[in-house]
C-alpha cells in the first residue's frame, strides 16, 4: 500500500525555512497551509476550477466538470456554490487539498495539519482525503515534533523522513 512522507521539525521557523528551500524550484511544490487560503471572492467550484483554467487552459465548462467530479468523490458537492467563509474548518481543509490535487506533477506539501485544523479526527480525515484523491504518493506532511506521537497513536502508515 502506498504511503506518504512526513517530516518533523522542532520548531516552526525550521519548518518554514525547509519549505522555502524545497519550494525554491519554481512549480515543484504546492502548499496546503493557512498561508494559502481559498479565494474569498470566488465560490468553491470556481476556486478549484481556477487551477485548470490557468494551467491547462481549460474552458469553464470542462474545468468546472472536473472540479465537481473531485467534490463528488469527497461528497462535498453541496458546497460548490458556497463561499469559503460559509464552510467549516474541516471542509476548508478538504477543499484546499482538492485544489492542491488539481496541480499536476507537483508535490503537495501539507503544513502543520494539526495546528491548522484542531479537531479530534483531523489526522484521520487528512489521510482519508489523500487516499480518496489518490495523491498520497506525491504528498509530504511537514509538522512539529511535538505532534509525532499523535501520528503514532493513530497508527498511520507513513515514512518519517529524518
Amino acid at each position: 500500500m502506498a504511503s506518504f512522507n512526513i517530516k518533523f521539525f522542532t520548531d516552526i521557523v525550521l519548518l518554514e525555512s525547509y519549505y522555502k528551500s524545497i519550494s525554491r524550484e519554481y512549480g515543484t511544490h504546492v502548499a496546503v497551509s493557512p498561508h494559502t487560503p481559498l479565494l474569498s471572492n470566488l465560490n468553491i467550484i470556481e476556486n478549484i476550477a481556477l487551477i485548470e483554467e490557468v494551467h491547462e487552459r481549460y474552458e469553464r465548462e470542462k474545468s468546472h466538470a472536473n472540479a465537481l467530479e473531485k467534490l463528488k468523490k469527497l461528497n462535498l458537492q453541496d458546497l460548490q456554490t458556497k463561499r469559503p467563509s460559509q464552510c467549516s474548518d474541516l471542509e476548508l481543509f478538504s477543499l484546499s487539498l482538492i485544489r492542491a490535487s488539481m496541480m499536476r506533477y507537483v508535490t503537495i506539501t501539507v503544513i502543520t495539519p494539526l495546528v491548522q485544523y484542531q479537531s479530534e479526527n483531523s489526522l484521520e480525515h487528512l489521510f482519508k482525503v489523500l487516499n480518496i484523491l489518490d495523491v498520497k504518493e506525491r504528498t509530504i506532511v511537514l509538522d512539529l515534533s511535538l505532534y509525532e506521537n499523535d501520528y503514532k497513536d493513530k497508527g498511520i502508515t507513513c515514512n518519517i523522513i529524518r
Binding site: S23, Y26, G27, V30, A31, P34, H35, T36, P37, L38, L39, S40, N41, L50, I51, V54, H55, R99, M103
Partner: peptide, 21 residues
Amino acid sequence: TEIAVMQVSGELNALKEFNIG
C-alpha cells in the same frame, strides 16, 4: 480595498503559490 484585503488575508500569496500570475 479588494487587493489590500487579499494581501493581508494571504490570498495573493495563495495565488503565487499556485503559480497563478
